[in-house]
Amino acid sequence: MELKLIGIGTGNPEHLTLQAIREMRDCDLILLPRKGADRQDLADLRRGICEEHLGATTRIVEFDMPVRNEAIISYRQRVDAWHDEIAERWMEAISAHGTAGRVGLLVWGDPSLYDSTIRIAERLSTRVDLQLTIIPGVTSLQGLTAAHGIPLNEIAKPVVITTGRRLREEGFPDGADTVAVMLDGECSFTCLDPAGLDIWWGAYVGMAQEAIMAGPLRDLAGPIETRRAELRAENGWIMDIYLLRRRTA
């Protein structure tokens, strides 16, 4: 079986690359995850992409994503158990439709950047003869810097990409002037000393409801937290990302 992990960008259908469209059309079966009523927009966007680009011969199968078991104390064990269950759902959906050919999964953003689809796919290799194909997509980090019209890095300077959880637990990374923060549901920038820090924040980057704010962290921490809560209440879900940078002379 060939499993194609196809990056589809950050929610803008125009982010889809020509390669992604070609690989989708080459699939015998496309798996579409359902993540609950509060994220119906995400499922609808994937369906819309399929309706626009797929031919009549490609089968589309939807499956329900499992919920992570928060009762497991260890974060890593919690994630591993969740990934095991997702892999099982994939196999059930594939087996139920009797295909061992070309299967596609549409991955939000890019499969390589803070996404576990590749790691989950590797679990299938113990059960089937698996060929894994990765098709890159536009990432939320690219969408953020494009929306603000800024470069990701300063000249000859490194960039750290991390999560909100690590930012809360460890603070601003040592040796870095620029930090990109993903998967932050708790506005972890409010835990930092804002002195000398600027922030570029974006929600739904690349989508019709895109919202961005930028400026000194000291001035924007509160307003961003408020705006994020408003957007989540309006839409029922939110995806956001931000860049922090130490201000230099």
Rank of each mutant, 00 (worst) to 15 (best):
R245K: 05
R245M: 04
R232P: 03
S188K: 06
Q77G: 11
V205K: 09
V103Y: 14
M239Y: 08
W200M: 05
R102W: 10
L144M: 10
D80K: 14
L130W: 10
L220F: 01
E169W: 01
G164Y: 07
W90N: 05
E70T: 09
A93Y: 03
C27Q: 00
G98D: 08
V103N: 10
R218W: 04
N235E: 09
D110G: 02
E62P: 07
L243I: 13
N235R: 13
R119S: 08
A37H: 14
M1S: 11
A96C: 06
L31H: 11
A203G: 15
D110H: 05
L16I: 12
T162H: 12
R246N: 01
D64Q: 15
P13R: 04
I224L: 07
R47N: 02
T139Y: 09
R119P: 04
N12G: 06
L106Y: 14
F172K: 07
A229L: 11
L217W: 05
P13M: 06
G48I: 02
E23L: 14
G236Y: 14
I118V: 12
W237F: 15
A203F: 10
I150Y: 01
A100P: 00
H83T: 02
A100E: 11
L45W: 15
I134D: 07
R34K: 15
I238M: 15
E210V: 11
R47P: 05
D84A: 09
D84S: 03
L105T: 04
P223F: 01
I86N: 00
D38A: 13
R232C: 14
D28I: 01
G185Q: 01
L144G: 05
N153L: 02
H83Y: 11
G222E: 08
G171I: 05
L32D: 09
L132M: 06
A147G: 10
R227V: 05
R168L: 07
I6F: 13
M24L: 15
L54K: 08
Q209H: 11
V179E: 05
